[in-house]
Design a protein around this nucleic acid. Sequence first.
RNA 1: GCGGGUGUAGCUCAGUUGGUUAGAGCGCCAGUUUGUGGUACUGGAUGUCGGCGGUUCGAUUCCGCUCACUCGCCCCA
Length: 412
Amino acid sequence: MSSLQPVRGTHDLLPDESRRHRKVEETAFAAARRYGFGEIMTPIFEFTDVFARTLGETSDVVTKEMYTFADRSGESITLRPEGTAGVARAFISGGLAQSLPLKLFYRGPMFRHERPQKGRLRQFHQVGVELLGVESPLADVEVIAVAWRVLSELGLASKVRLEINTLGDAESRETYRNTLVAYLSGFRDSLSEDSRNRLERNPLRILDSKDEGDRRIVENAPLMTDSLSPAAREFFTQVTAGLHALGIPFVINPRLVRGLDYYCHTAFEFTTTELGSQGTVLAGGRYDELIATMGGQRTPGIGWAAGVERLSMLVGEVADDARPVSVIPMGDAMAALVVAERLRRSGRAVEMGFSGNMKKRMARANKVNARFAVILGEEESARQAVTIRDLDTSTQDEVPLAQLEDYLGRQS
RNA sequence: GCGGGUGUAGCUCAGUUGGUUAGAGCGCCAGUUUGUGGUACUGGAUGUCGGCGGUUCGAUUCCGCUCACUCGCCCCA
């Protein structure tokens, strides 16, 4: 393997793609702010324990996908595979319990050693929100509303479908788990190999197995709904009522589960059919026991994370809206540099090539999609003027140097 | 981690039933226009035919391994 290749599953983001990423991130953050979320930036690595304890010792993410290494002092460090654990850690270590309820937004790279595919990278990016300290189902509704707003503003409302389910409270979940395992054990020999392994580890996952045989068995399996405590049932009813009230379309999927152990009650997922098998674009749920599990005082929470790469594939091309001015020197390049700088200080994007004749520079101006070319010719210079060519209309004027900004301001 | 597909110029792809100089379109560079772009015309450059090894007189073409991407599984955002 050549060391001049990027590491498997990593990617350089060139300007076009980078712009799309930014658009996704900024749109998400702008929307979240309107709901009262502020940005938190946690470290990209944490002590391994932070993830091992919170995600569940048996989850796949922890057992085989983390980038874990010993640092120079021998500490076991892990590159974050997701954002919630780090936020929860910051919540505890930063004494943020003082300021509940807390609404936090985050963005940034995450790392998972998985087999790369379209929409699945080893270094990928997420944006996400966490709402801490609110027991009420209204929090679930609000958090889902932010997600829906973000997706809508990215123009993806019609490409995406919201599925929700409840995993119940700890008690209901335990009851359900037992009845499910009891049911499935009767079919042990007919289950797929994958699902047989999941039987002890994570039986709920068998519910959304893609194996044909599994599906037939699961079809008649008892549902979470039947094991729900009255309180958990009421909670879920409130959530769905809230979504109706806000006009957010959704479907209930009783077989929707979450991979990470810390989830309870509401679980939701926005999926698309346009990205193949990596169709989940944004997902989240409630995690009332997470903070307590980590050793903090029990604090309910709910949040979601979205895959920036997946969203940006759906968003498509994003136009660069700031069209530059091209400054074209014919004689004195230094004088042109001064003019370019002047325009930049006035807030304009200015492009000035480092070499080339007029023709080349005009071609370049065209290529960078400039609106105007400011031509500094010798003759105009003598008159303390420049020629400004409108590249859209192919017309040009001679303008006194002193009125440069004014003229451009009037034209565009 | 498992199974399948693909890998030829910067990009999209053709081609070689193994044989001397590997092609197209787009893009790039130059010119037609020595102070004027986007169109048109003319000309030009570029490839260790993903990498390593094997078979062969000879491999980009066949075989093995490997790497990358991709599809499905798994997992998940």
